[in-house]
């Protein structure tokens, strides 16, 4: 009787006891529905219908039509994520502190999250299309002579990514900014720092880790762009992103090995970018953003 009690005791001292069983169901769920399928996908990608183990990967990388989807995706996702983050910073900084209509403005910013891909796509086609209101205004004010082509190309997808991604980035950066003790800036002001100096030397270094995280999250959103690339882009040409390639391989060509290989490649690229950004982030100061210890 004493022995098992003592053993339980030793384990408890290391933080292992029955309570950890509460982790079980969630762990089983994630292992069964995420880790296992992922490994299954990797396995599938290594069992092509013809050829050796790496044949699917080789097919992807040797076929320019497939290979270029990586570049197409990155060319859309990186600038979109970067723009969303960089545009959010000055606006979030402006919106610090209390002022009338702040809550209303935040609520307005949430609206694009509710739009969903299809309404955004329909709206883009209607509003920015050749006969849409936007082009009509430009034409009637004489800024342009012929309608500007903003949809069914890279610009359309980019606009869609900004409309859905910007509010997201803005709200996140706003919350990071709210976490920085305003007393720190006031302290810098008493030491003689002007507005720009306060921003560059105090606020920005404290905000930088948050910016890196926000970039990662908006990048994930933009990188997995699929519906908008189909609906407002040019899915057979300039906006044939990697997720379209994966979908085509799986559900139109029924080549599950190639589809899985593309999914794996997609995951690896995503992880490389995230690792690069988070690696850079780990070089930054990431401690408390309050003035007190």
């Amino acid at each position: 009787m004493a022995q098992p009690a003592a053993w339980r005791h030793r384990m408890a001292e290391r933080g292992v006891d029955w309570q950890l069983l509460l982790l079980g169901p969630a762990t089983i769920c994630v292992l069964g529905l995420f880790v296992y399928p992922f490994c299954y996908g990797v396995g599938l990608s290594l069992q092509p219908e013809g050829g050796d183990v790496l044949a699917s990967y080789r097919r992807f990388f040797t076929d320019a039509y497939e290979r270029d989807t990586i570049w197409t995706t990155l060319r859309l996702a990186l600038p979109a994520a970067l723009f969303n983050v960089l545009a959010s910073v000055p606006i979030a900084c402006r919106m610090r502190g209390r002022f009338r209509g702040r809550r209303a403005l935040t609520t307005l910013l949430v609206i694009p999250i509710t739009l969903g891909t299809v309404l955004t796509a329909e709206g883009l086609l209607n509003y920015f299309g050749p006969t849409g209101w936007f082009n009509r205004i430009l034409l009637s004010t004489g800024i342009v002579d012929t309608p500007v082509r903003l949809t069914n190309n890279v610009t359309g997808v980019m606009l869609s990514l900004v409309i859905t991604g910007f509010p997201f980035a803005f709200l996140l950066i706003g919350s990071y900014l709210a976490g920085i003790d305003p007393a720190l800036e006031r302290a810098a002001a008493t030491l003689g720092a002007g507005g720009w100096q306060r921003f560059w030397r105090i606020t920005l270094p404290l905000l930088a880790p948050g910016l890196a995280t926000t970039f990662c999250l908006t990048f994930v959103l933009a990188f997995s762009v699929f519906p908008s690339a189909v609906l407002v882009g040019d899915p057979a040409g300039t906006t044939r992103v990697i997720s379209i390639a994966a979908y085509h391989a799986a559900y139109e060509a029924y080549d599950y090995s190639l589809a899985s290989a593309i999914a794996v490649i997609m995951g690896v690229i995503e992880l490389i970018i995230l690792a690069a950004v988070l690696g850079w982030r780990s070089l930054l100061y990431t401690g408390s953003t309050r003035g007190k210890g």
């Binding site: 994630v30 529905l33 995420f34 296992y36 399928p37 992922f38 299954y40 996908g41 599938l44 990662c216 994930v220 990188f223 997995s224 699929f226 997720s243 994966a246 979908y247 799986a250 599950y256 589809a259 899985s260 999914a263 794996v264 997609m266 995951g267 995503e270 995230l274």
Partner: peptide
């Protein structure tokens, strides 16, 4: 954390196949 960070397509295709 990974499922939140990964594009759904990457695990969605093998998951759907499974």
């Amino acid at each position: 954390l990974l499922p939140v960070l990964m594009p759904p397509i990457t695990y969605g295709i093998p998951l759907a196949t499974m």
